[in-house]
Design a protein around this nucleic acid. Structure first.
Lengths: 213, 213
DNA sequence: CATAAAGTTAAACGAACGTTTGAACAACGA
DNA sequence: TCGTTGTTCAAACGTTCGTTTAACTTTATG
């Protein structure tokens, strides 16, 4: 089937982009189909035509984001390099990805605890793969070296939350202090995260030695 | 006014508790007034009678949570002790608070990016106080000692996200691997966070030799 | 050109939404 | 006893929700 070019690329794409923007800003439930349709400049019925339902549209957004996030984890963590280098590369790639797909990130994280069984099971399937990678490539090697056991179901959320905090809280922090988001570049933010994770918040220039305040 | 004991403590309290539970599990917008009223075993009108509106109910939940969180920050961070001890005490208290008020935490964080001006401004007022404390008690002392500048609008979200990750992702991780939440106690989780923040994820063997599990 | 498929449209469906109303009820001091 | 005050209730308000239907136009194909 050559339906790649068959369908009008404008309508479906416009719906998707508009939905990502609206869901991130207003929330999924607070966004109405009519507002979405009019902002995307399509007829109301087109959403159900292309995506089956409002929930189907959400699932597609989640799938797009998760698959990209998972691909980064596979690429940067599955590697013969040492643990620290892989962690640094993963954080760099993931934070850049979060920045590029900021709205999708907000949707994916914020809609997390809501207990629609259909959506939750959908996310759990993705999260399961992510947890498996973190376990194989981070937790197990780390456990061998240091003897500590950090379960992947604990570490994966910690890493994701930490990397996402800049973008999740960004809009609120802008209200707290205008310009605070741009005051720290994404590159600086990445370095900050790597420094904290590898050496702690107190000692970023030294890996060993004395420690006072 | 003796309206403290005059009003029936059952109804308003039941509404509040039920709302916290429902908002955390289903989301604010997805929770209907009728479902809330029937689950709380009150008449539909009682919610508007006690809280003015659905949004007023949400505001009260947010206020309760934020004020407790802020009180902990004031108590544990504002102290002549050294930075590391204060940070450790703050994390311990905050994580315990998050655990006790898990549903309110989920509501407060998850409903964050939604751009209702009334709610956002309400949260910004609380966040502004939190950022100020973090700046005075963490960022400024830390900057003097190490020369690094970590803006409080960056650090406060990072700390909060990190401490909250266990509870925000808990329900999802339970779907990924049943029992994974209880596999790590809150006390272990706290120690893990303190260790990472003070010494990084890789080097926990120094400073305190007895780190097991 | 014919035919089917893909895309688009206006209109309507029933259900659920948050909120308001006005009367009833219980408890209290005057 | 009456009047006041805080609480509870059933019923209805008007609006908006997600979805569906059926007819129409456009596009691709043989």
């Amino acid at each position: 089937m050559n339906n790649k070019k068959l369908q009008n690329p404008n309508s479906k794409e416009r719906i998707l982009r508009t939905a990502i923007s609206l869901f991130a800003r207003k929330g999924f439930a607070e966004t109405g189909m009519r507002e979405l349709a009019s902002k995307a400049e399509v007829n109301l019925s087109m959403v159900n035509y292309f995506f089956g339902s409002k929930k189907g549209l959400l699932k597609e957004i989640l799938d797009d984001f998760f698959s990209g996030y998972l691909a980064i984890a596979r690429e940067e963590l599955t590697d013969p390099e040492d643990l620290q280098s892989r962690l640094e590369r993963f954080i760099t790639s993931a934070v850049n990805y979060f920045e590029a797909e900021r709205d999708s990130l907000i949707i994916t994280i914020s809609e997390l605890p809501h207990d629609d069984p259909e959506i939750v099971e959908h996310k759990a399937a993705w999260a399961r793969q992510m947890v498996e990678i973190v376990n194989q490539e981070l937790c197990l090697p780390h456990g061998e070296k240091t003897g500590q056991k950090i379960p992947p179901t604990c570490l994966a959320p910690m890493l994701t939350s930490l990397m996402a905090s800049r973008f999740l809280f960004g809009p609120l922090m802008e209200k707290v202090q205008a310009g605070s988001f741009k005051a720290v570049t994404t590159e600086d933010y990445t370095k900050m995260l790597v420094g904290i994770l590898l050496q702690g918040i107190t000692g970023t220039e030294k890996k060993s030695g004395e420690r006072n305040i």
